[in-house]
Design a protein around this nucleic acid. Sequence first.
DNA 1: CCCCCCCC
Length: 516
Amino acid sequence: MQLHNGQQQTEASAPPSPVLSVGFWDAFAAGCMWSEPVLAALSFSPLGKDHILVLATDGSIQVKTKENTPSKKNAADGAKEQQEEQQQHLAGGGGEQQQSEENRGRWTPVVTELQLLPGQWSRPRCQLVMQPHRLYAAESGGEEAPKHRGNSPSKSTEETKRTPSEGQLPTAAAAKRAKKNNGSSNEGRSEIKTFANAKGESILFTVHLIDAQATEIRATFFGRAASHWHPRLSVGKVYTFSKGTLQRANRLHNSLPHEVQIKFDASVEIDEVGDDPSIPLQKFERVYLGDLPRFPPGSVVDVLGFVVGAKEVETVLSRTKNEQLLRRELTLLDASESPVFFTLFGAQALQLPHSALEDNPLVAIKGAKVQEYGGRSCLVSSAQMQITFLQRAHATETNRSTRAAAAPATQRQMQAEKETTEENMAHTGGSSRTQTPIFAGVAAADVQGELDWFSAKGAAILNTLEDYGPKAAFPLTLGEVGRAVQHLHLEEVGSSRAFNVIGSLLDLQGAHLFWL
DNA sequence: CCCCCCCC
């Protein structure tokens, strides 16, 4: 039996959903602070459909200055603050409390592992991890990492101007708009990757940049530049980048047409500048789902369509690497009337809020990879993919302008403000914010075409899909889990329930488990 | 300095 009834509870009693942060360790290593509790997804352990999730919290404690959280204005505030107080109370024994304004809220992270099996529930070992990942400890220069990483988040590498070595760009000072791949978490962060080579282990992340000529180029941040800049760059904002190194693009691995790519190390200099309306927000070359068979597997395409089906997140065992993968399969449909499965892996699967998938949202997906399965074309998430949920209500407002570059500045400012607001609301992440078509660079005519088609014929096709296609089924939200577990505690040991769990928090002593 | 893979 699945617990799906949490949503019947009243809104008022619902605990707030904390921000799910995938870029946790890198942000932590870079000295990031969170004013609210943050859940960090670290790794996942296998358990078939009833998966285990391993999560971390930074245990951040909010400083009680209400003025510095202007973005909070929803009804959940009270509950959220209550929860923070509770966390603060519990954390009080073991943490090293930082006193200065800069250091507020920095606690040693804790990690726990939970298993919720059909027919039983358990909390085995509750292994605590009291240090950040060794890679990030190494990035910090070798000192013991977790304690005071928050000490000086602002005095960091970009202040140190190093002599450019040969091969470095003399001046790549053109303003570019950062389009970080695969927005995630509340600040649009992309994932940081770890890698190993002969020189040891390090980290990296990549961005796609676009300039006023609508030229896209791929840039990769390494090592300290990665840990520093990853939490400081936001998709959609405009920056100047300099002191990068140019490389010939590897056509095998770089999907952008640009013949060059950029490498950024610790000598990179980046400045955020004001919005520049001449820089498009995104380049989008729409492909109909029905045309996907014309693209060879491995192609990267942009599609515009409706989410008409969404399975829950599942765990599957990778054959090639022997590790557990998170997978979520959506079904897309557009006016070409060829339903296509769209599979998301890893964090991209996890971060999609199921609320965003209700009511067949129209989405613009940039940079999905074409694959073939069972003789049919399908789509798979790619690292640089960007999913934009389009607002239907606003779709017609942008008819007059089909190009982002042609949008009036005021409208773009509204976009930016809207984005900021939604970031602060932080239900999930950049990949799921609802935007107007102009934000995604999608032609308004294409959007209108889809909407018209959907209202005319979509429902009928949807009905046929429901006969065989995946119906929407979702894991419990964190709040729902909390309520469900309360019920569980009242039951006999050994009584049978099945759960799908996506998150939990453990206090610093490992004694108290918070279901959020 | 990586390498975008993963599964039905």
